[in-house]
Amino acid sequence: MIELNKDNFEQEVMQAEGPVIVDFWGTKCEPCKALMPEVERLAEQYKDKIKFCKLNTTENRRLAISQKVMGLPTFIVYKNGEKVKEISGADNCTPEAIENLIKENI
Results as ranks from 00 to 15, higher is better:
97 A>G: 05
35 L>V: 10
9 F>A: 02
74 T>V: 09
65 I>E: 15
20 V>H: 06
2 I>K: 07
16 A>W: 11
65 I>C: 09
86 E>H: 08
16 A>T: 10
26 G>K: 04
102 I>H: 02
2 I>W: 08
23 D>Q: 14
37 P>L: 03
58 T>F: 12
71 G>K: 12
12 E>P: 00
101 L>W: 01
36 M>P: 00
25 W>M: 12
61 R>M: 13
9 F>W: 00
92 N>C: 10
53 C>P: 02
36 M>L: 01
34 A>K: 15
66 S>F: 01
35 L>C: 06
31 P>Q: 11
9 F>P: 03
49 K>I: 11
78 Y>G: 08
29 C>A: 14
25 W>D: 07
20 V>R: 03
45 Q>K: 15
62 R>A: 12
38 E>C: 13
81 G>H: 08
53 C>F: 10
75 F>K: 03
9 F>G: 00
64 A>F: 02
61 R>K: 11
5 N>C: 13
45 Q>H: 11
34 A>D: 11
38 E>T: 10
61 R>A: 15
64 A>M: 02
56 N>W: 08
28 K>I: 11
82 E>V: 01
68 K>A: 11
35 L>D: 10
90 A>K: 07
30 E>I: 04
6 K>R: 12
82 E>Q: 13
32 C>W: 07
76 I>P: 02
2 I>M: 09
95 P>G: 11
64 A>N: 05
32 C>Y: 06
42 L>G: 03
44 E>S: 12
20 V>C: 06
96 E>I: 05
25 W>C: 05
17 E>A: 15
62 R>Y: 07
74 T>M: 07
71 G>L: 14
20 V>P: 03
43 A>Y: 05
86 E>T: 15
84 V>W: 00
